[in-house]
Amino acid sequence: MTRIAVTVDGVKYADEVEPRMLLVHYLREQVGKTGTVVGCDTSNCGACTVHLDGRSVKSCSILAVQADGSEVTTIEGLAREGQLHPVQQAFHDNHALQCGFCTPGMIMQSIDLLGDNPDPDDAAVREGLEGNLCRCTGYQNIVKAVRDAADMMSSGAGPAAERVSPSSVAGGGR
């Protein structure tokens, strides 16, 4: 067993883990963050995407021990004071989810891509999400949602953007 200290969604945890434990299993089983899910075993589907020290990663392809000393943000840590993150809101507004299994990973990756490119066109959104598979939506409403979120998060976009400023959420404002 190896001792690790990890901050998850703003809470500090110190745990003994087996070196072979995947970060996603640590999050789900030891920290109780079952919002993050496992969809494959070859890192193709992206359902397990979280932010590790501010960047999107596939938590099924990282050992928990590799996250020692790091900060992790999951889908469960996005909302601020009961307000959804603009990307969460946009997924709801644009019917960008059906079964919802890929959704946590999609949202976490969407936030990361908006951090890199605050005003992406359709092609840029699609490329930014190439590591996340969805079987329900055909992606069209996801693309729409990410662009809608970009509008909400852009400066001067009005009250929606002010609710959650990009710099206050993981993945934004880099």
Binding site: D41, T42, S43, Q66
Partner: peptide, 26 residues
């Protein structure tokens, strides 16, 4: 040797490799 793990981890998960020691360069 474990670098970023993006090639090694899927291999370990599928149990196509089973090293006794993993040396993490992080």
């Amino acid at each position: 040797v474990l670098g970023g793990g993006q090639s090694l981890l899927p291999v370990l998960r599928m149990r196509l490799a089973a090293p006794t020691t993993v040396v993490d360069l992080r």
